[in-house]
Nucleic acid binder design. Structure first.
Lengths: 122, 122
DNA sequence: TTGACAGTTGAATAGTTGTTCAACTATAAT
DNA sequence: ATTATAGTTGAACAACTATTCAACTGTCAA
């Protein structure tokens, strides 16, 4: 069956359409859920944070090393790490003068690889 | 072996560290790749676009219907659809007065579900 | 204790981005 | 032909965000 626009329907047509939708159980998920989803992707939607996650995927590292690796100031890196930390994607541990950061979530790698696969096939 | 900070190393220690890194083949991927990755996530990092993708996952739909479903103006929806379209995530087909949009990529659903799973377990 | 280094923080700035508004095109109906 | 509807577009505005800068804390070494 061809899809139709709800905008052009008579009352009766709209009624039938609604019945159809009922039987197919088409429904939007909770709005807050979609907001959480987009918030999560927003975290990944920044090249600095992606690079940080990628680097920490391989190595536990401290702020200065990450700053060297990405050619950024320690301040900028620290700001972004704080965001990743408050989202519970990385965890920090202080040892002496250094603060070492590590991934706290194993899903991240999977999602990164998933997206890479998408990009490669596109 | 405990991780160390490159910042505190002597030349000799740094040399040994580099040898270690060589054997472990730790390397950052091409920078442009990570930029593509974050660009992709940036697309998903907006609740309007996530809702559009979610809706189109179930239904091919036209602009007015999507606008009704999300309680937005047709203009706002059209702008966002244009972004999704230029990223080749949706495709458009004009039929009569309507323009019907549909997902053009099957990876999207998988990635959405992946992220949802992550959110549920967190 | 003093100096040096690692990292954090808040304010300021510059760049980005989503929505609105108004004007426009194109299709269908009377 | 005229009118109404569906959708697109560009400019303008407001909100958001990443980086920089300067000041600060805490730790180690001399």
């Amino acid at each position: 069956m061809d899809r139709i626009s709800l905008q052009n329907l008579t009352i009766e047509q709209l009624f039938n359409y609604n019945k159809l939708m009922d039987t197919k159980k088409i429904e939007m998920p909770d709005t807050t859920l979609l907001y959480d989803l987009s918030d999560f992707f927003k975290l990944m939607g920044d090249s600095t944070r992606i690079q940080l996650l990628w680097a920490l995927e391989e190595n536990e590292m401290c702020v200065g090393d990450l700053a060297n690796l990405l050619n950024m100031t320690k301040s900028a890196v620290s700001h972004q790490l704080k965001i990743l930390r408050s989202a519970k994607l990385v965890k920090a541990e202080k040892r002496g003068k250094n603060v070492f950061y590590a991934l706290s979530d194993h899903h991240v790698k999977t999602i990164l690889e998933m997206a890479l696969e998408h990009l490669n096939e596109g």
